[in-house]
Computed example of a mutant assay.
Amino acid sequence: MRLPSTPSPALSRRLRRPLLSLALLGALASGLFAGCSTLDEQQRRWIFQASADAPWPQERRGPRDDGLENVWIEHPSALSGRPVTLHALWSPNESADAPLLLYLHGARRNIEASRFRIAQMRALGFSVLAIDYRGFGQSTDELPSEAGVLEDARAAWDWLARQHPGRPRYVFGHSLGGAIAVQLAEAVDDERGLIVEGSFTSIADVFRTFKWGWLPVTPLITQRFDSADAIARVGSPVLIVHGSRDGLILPQLGRALYERAVEPKRFVLVEGGTHYSTNGVGQPLYREALRELFGIGAVPRPTATGAGAPAPAAAPAGS
């Protein structure tokens, strides 16, 4: 029987988990023998899987033909002492007072490859700003770190506040971006809500779900992304979403993250959702959760203008 030239998506997911496990083991082993600096760098390469694109010519930084707007955010990095430039995509909602959403993507894929999820979050009622961290896409070509991407997320959060003052802001993160979103929400006090999809409690906990997770190497992990600890200090409502068929980040990790959050909170398990399809498959559940937890899309109660009078149009949360 002739084998297919490329594996099926399901087979790819089954293969990727042991490959990720072996990759982290390799990073830990090579770094251990070469020294602490290499140990840290190897883990950062494995965890982020970042790749910078060739710089765009100036004319490509202008208007686009896909309805999105290129945004360039510059901020000084306290880690490197050098300025960092972030490439972002801005997708405004047709409603001028729609709530704002900072979109934080996961490992490997940049914002150009995340446009489908940007569109899905916009369809839920948000104006969306999605950023590439340093080391990704058109942003500054620098090896990212846990501390560095949090700097980048905070710079984008502050950009939204400057450009759209007074508008309610939410933070959304997918996969590794969920861990960044949790830390950002812990660090600021002006977010209206936190939304996390397909994420986890910590990098160490993710490794423990892999084939070689029984090995006692987790104390060597430098990029820990301890979301379980941080989410307990988030002061806004929290929505945790996970796909029942997520074979990369198992649903029990999303549930465990939810258990550590404080009320008000909600956990949504999307039946049939995978690591990459949950956002689209779960749109009806998203709408319900956003309405109940954040009041986005909620129909206000009739006023005393008269029994049976039609309710006024729904307003975005925080308007």
Rank of each mutant, 00 (worst) to 15 (best):
75 H>K: 10
75 H>Y: 11
75 H>E: 05
75 H>V: 06
75 H>G: 07
76 P>I: 05
76 P>W: 04
76 P>A: 13
76 P>T: 04
77 S>L: 03
77 S>C: 09
78 A>T: 12
78 A>R: 15
80 S>E: 00
80 S>Y: 00
80 S>K: 00
81 G>K: 00
81 G>Y: 00
81 G>N: 01
82 R>Y: 01
82 R>Q: 06
83 P>Q: 13
83 P>C: 10
83 P>W: 09
84 V>L: 02
84 V>C: 01
85 T>I: 08
85 T>N: 03
86 L>C: 14
86 L>G: 12
86 L>K: 13
87 H>Y: 06
87 H>D: 03
87 H>I: 03
88 A>F: 03
88 A>P: 04
88 A>S: 08
88 A>H: 03
89 L>N: 06
89 L>G: 04
89 L>D: 02
89 L>H: 05
89 L>M: 07
89 L>V: 05
90 W>C: 06
90 W>G: 05
90 W>I: 08
90 W>Y: 11
91 S>I: 10
91 S>W: 14
91 S>M: 12
91 S>T: 13
91 S>D: 13
92 P>Q: 11
92 P>S: 12
92 P>E: 13
92 P>D: 11
92 P>N: 13
93 N>S: 14
93 N>G: 08
93 N>I: 10
94 E>Y: 07
94 E>Q: 11
94 E>M: 07
95 S>E: 15
95 S>Q: 14
95 S>R: 14
96 A>F: 10
96 A>N: 10
96 A>Y: 07
96 A>E: 11
97 D>I: 13
98 A>F: 11
99 P>L: 03
99 P>V: 02
100 L>D: 10
101 L>H: 09
101 L>F: 07
101 L>Y: 05
102 L>R: 00
102 L>H: 01
102 L>Q: 01
103 Y>P: 02
103 Y>C: 03
103 Y>D: 02
103 Y>F: 15
103 Y>G: 02
104 L>Q: 06
105 H>A: 14
105 H>D: 10
105 H>R: 10
106 G>Y: 05
106 G>A: 12
106 G>Q: 07
106 G>I: 09
108 R>I: 08
109 R>W: 09
109 R>Q: 11
110 N>M: 02
110 N>G: 06
110 N>A: 07
110 N>K: 07
111 I>V: 11
111 I>S: 05
113 A>M: 14
113 A>I: 12
113 A>K: 13
113 A>V: 14
113 A>H: 14
113 A>C: 12
114 S>Y: 09
114 S>A: 14
114 S>K: 05
